[in-house]
Amino acid sequence: METLLAIVIGILYAAGVYLLLRRSIVKLILGILFFSHATNLLILVAGGLVRALPQFAGDASLTVNSTDPLPQALILTAIVIGFGITAFALALMYRFYKSTGTEDLDELTEGEHK
């Protein structure tokens, strides 16, 4: 399972880098999202994958064979932050498109020097 997830994380990072290097701002934002999802998965895997009950789930299983809840808490926090950032990035993209009329980042830098 770890190996499979490691490959998935690698693919997500690769896709993220590829998208980040594109000229379109939409793809740029998608790339950032891929990055953040890959990182969340990385934390999950690094925290250790154990097939067990969640902690504090029932009374009997309080200590026996429970997973570490902290990586999940970290991921949850990271997801919430990523969510806020996505909302901001989408708003930025929209304003950007409105005021420049293009989603191509290269055209824009040329415009800056003129």
Binding site: F35, S36, L42, P71, A78
Partner: peptide, 18 residues
């Protein structure tokens, strides 16, 4: 800055895992 945050977060994940 977002890319840098992701590096930071990945570092935290690995460090916690270890």
């Amino acid at each position: 800055n977002l890319v840098s945050s992701m590096f930071f977060l990945a570092g935290i994940g690995l460090l916690y895992g270890k």
